[in-house]
Design a protein around this nucleic acid. Sequence first.
RNA 1: AGGGCGGUGGCCAAGCGGUAAGGCACAGGUCUUUGGAACCUGCAUGCGUAGGUUCGAAUCCUACCCGCCCUGCCA
Length: 570
Amino acid sequence: MKHSDPPEKENTNNSSDTNFIRQAIEEDLKANRYDGRVHTRFPPEPSGYLHIGHAKAICISFGIAEDFGGLYNLRFDDSNPLTEESEYVEGIKRDVRWLGFDWKAREYHASDYFETLCEYAVKLIEKGKAYVCDLTPEEMRSYRGTLVEAGKDSPYRDRSIEESLTLFRGMRDGEFPDGSRTLRAKIDMSSPNLNMRDPVMYRILRAHHYRQGDDWCIYPTYDFTHGQSDSIEGVTHSLCDVQFEDHRPLYDWFLEELEIYQPRQIEFARLNLTYTVLGKRKLKVLVEEGHVSGWDDPRLPTLSGMRRRGYTPEAIRDFCNRIGVSKADNLIEMGQLEYSIRDDLNRRAPRVMAVLNPVKVIIDNYPEGQVEMLDAENNPEDENAGTRQIPFSREIYIEREDFMEDPPRKFFRLAPGREVRLKHAYYIQCERVVKDENGEIVEIHCTYDPETRGGWSEDGRRVRGTLHWVSDEHALDAEVRLYDSLFTEREPESTADGADWMQFLNPNSLEILSDCKVEPSLVEATPENRYQFLRMGYFCLDPDTSSEKLVFNRTVPLRDSWAKIQRGQK
RNA sequence: AGGGCGGUGGCCAAGCGGUAAGGCACAGGUCUUUGGAACCUGCAUGCGUAGGUUCGAAUCCUACCCGCCCUGCCA
C-alpha cells in the first residue's frame, strides 16, 4: 500500500482532518515507519449491539484508513464465550455495512487465533515469562495489592518452567476444574500499573463458544488476545478508547517478549451524549428489563434504534466528523446530533402533508362533492424532486394547534375572522366554530377565495400564516410515534447527588398519536423513505406498519421558533 | 495515597513561541407559499490557578488546583 496524498477533505466544517491521530500517522508515514502502510481495525466484542459511540470509533478507524488509502479490518474480539453470540456478530456487521463501510474480505475473529495464542503462551512459559498459578480468585485479589500498595508474588511464581509447561498442557487437556488454575505473565507485582502485576493470560472455563464450539476449555483473556490479534493482522495503528492507555505497556510487553510485529496504539476519548446512556451494559439493562421495546427501540442510541427512528448513515457520519477527536472528556449535546440529521434530511426528504392532531375544517362556499387535484412541489431544496398532485375538497383537516379562538399577538395562524393560506391550495377565512357539549371544537367553518388557487393572490394581499392540511375524504389514517429523550437528566450517570441513572428514565419518552391523517401519496411509503411532514418534522415509516395501519416515527422535529416565542411569553 | 491521561466560550474543537480558527447552541436582523431552510450580524482583552523564562506565552519552565480511568480468571 503506497501512501502519497494527504487526506482529502470531505467536509470543511470539521476538525477531523487535523486531529492528533491523523497528525501522528502523517509523522509515521514521513518516517516510513510501517513501509508507508496505514492499516486500522475496529474490534468489537459480539456481546451487544453497536451504538453511536461505536459509530464514532468506526468513523475514526475506518475513516482514517480510507482517507490515507489504507486498509481496515472488522475483527470480533471474541475471547469470552459466556457473553458472545452469533446474533450479535450479524447485528454488528449489518450496522457497520449500513454506516457505509466495506471491510471487504477482512473479517476476522480473535477466536481464530486461539491456537496461535496457545503457542505464544507456551513460548512465554519456556522463556520463563509466564507461569501456572494455583491461587483462587480471592487469593489472587489479595496478592494483587492495592492502588497504593505493591502486590505480593504468588507462591507459584517460581514454579519450574517444566512444571508450568506440564500444568498448562493439563489445563488445555481438561485435567483441572474450572477456575482452579490460571496462566499468568511473570512481570512485576510491585508495578504501579496494576495491569503489569502478573496479569492472567488463560483461565479454565468449560463453556460453549459460539464459533469454536466445545474445542476449548481454556480461554485467553482479552489482554492476552487483543494486542497479538492486531499484530497478527499487521495492523499499523490500533486506535482505541483512552481506557486502554494503561494496557498499552502490557500489550507492548507481550509483543516484545514474543518478538513479533508491534503496531502503534493511539487512544482517544469515547463519546458521551446528553440525556442518554451509552454503556453497553446499561443499554442491555434497558432492553432486558423491558424499559424499551428492544435493541432497535427508536429511543435508544443504538445504530439499529437510530436507523429505525429514521437517522441516515450520512447524518451519523457527518455528526462524527463534526464532533472531532481528542483525549479530553466530552459530553456532546443532543442538539449536535439533531443538527446533522436535520441538515441531511432537509436536503433530501420529500415534503408531504400530515395532520397529527386533526380538527375538521369545512369550507362552506366550496362546492359539495367537488375534488380538485393541486400541484405540490416535493422539495423546495431540490429542483429535481419534481411535483405531485394532492386532492383538495370541501372538508379537510388541519392541526388543532393551528387554530385559536382567542389568539395572542404574533399568532399567525387561523382564528375567527383571520385569513390564512392552505399550503398549495387556497386562502381561507374562519367564519365560525362548532363545539360539542364539552366545549371542544369539532368543526371550523371557513370560506375560501377561489381566486387564490395555488396559494397566491393577484391583488398582492399578504397572508402571514401557511397551514398544512389533508382532505378528509382522501386522507389515510395513521399512527405517529413521537419521541423525547430517554432520560430527563442531562447526565443521568453523574448527577450532583449521585443518584441511580435508572430513576431518570423519562416517563414521556414515547407519545403515541393514533388518530393522525396523512396525505394519500403515503400509501407508497417504505421504511427506507424519510419524509418531512410539512411544518412538523422528519418522519419515516415504522416496520410495525400493517395493512390496517400505517405507523410513522418522528425522527426529529423541525426547529420551532414559534414554540420559542411561546416559551418566552410565559 | 500510587500510576496513567486530561483541563481553550453554554457544548465540542483548532492552535505546536508571533499576539485566540471553525462548528453546535444562543441573541438580533434579512428573506420566505414550511414560524422550516437560506443569508447577514453579534457572541473568550481570554486559554484550570499562581509564579517564572522571553521583545513576545494557550504554546516553554516550576508549583499547586480540579476532573476522568485503573485493584474481573469481563472486554
